[in-house]
């Protein structure tokens, strides 16, 4: 996986431009596949067969299922919208993960129907760190510009 900041920053920025409501839920979706699988990967690291339990967490069908389960932790009023946002966020996460290089077959897009795994990717998991400073810079500048525009709007008579 690329780092969670990369997972969340770019999509967050794109959706922020669209003035999306409930961005907290989208952000949760963006990191959800990792927060549901990584703790188990680290805890069960010494158990070789643990991968059979943790790897499916990065498959679209399983993502749909746990987003559905999670959406039931919100009131009826929000449930459909939050489910949709969680799925959108998680799918963004999976798309980015499927693009990374992996010697091991860690991602199965068609689980449980096929154990076919995504072909050799485009970048190594740590490569995203190199992109973080420019992303963070753009994010910071955009936030400052937004704040200044807001203040100017308030001070106008």
């Amino acid at each position: 996986m690329p780092d969670l900041l990369t997972h969340s920053l770019l999509p967050y920025f794109l959706f922020r431009l669209q003035k999306l409501r409930d961005v907290e839920i989208l952000l949760l979706g963006l990191i959800l596949p990792d927060i549901l699988s990584r703790p188990f990967s680290y805890i069960l690291y010494k158990l070789p067969s643990a991968a059979y339990f943790t790897h499916p967490m990065h498959s679209p069908i399983v993502v749909l299922l746990y987003c559905l389960l999670l959406s039931f932790l919100f009131s009826d009023r929000h449930r459909k919208r939050f489910f949709f946002l969680l799925v959108v966020g998680s799918m963004f996460h999976l798309a980015l993960d499927y693009l990374q290089i992996n010697y091991d077959s860690a991602y199965f897009p068609f689980f449980p129907f096929s154990s076919w795994h995504s072909p050799k990717g485009l970048f190594w998991p740590e490569d995203s760190l190199a992109l973080l400073p420019p992303f963070a810079g753009i994010f910071l500048i955009a936030s400052i510009v937004r704040l200044l525009i807001k203040r100017r709007g308030k001070t106008k008579p």
Partner: peptide, 11 residues
């Protein structure tokens, strides 16, 4: 290690 640290910030 840096990747894990950065991920924790996001978390």
């Amino acid at each position: 290690t840096l990747k894990i640290f950065v991920s924790l910030i996001a978390l």
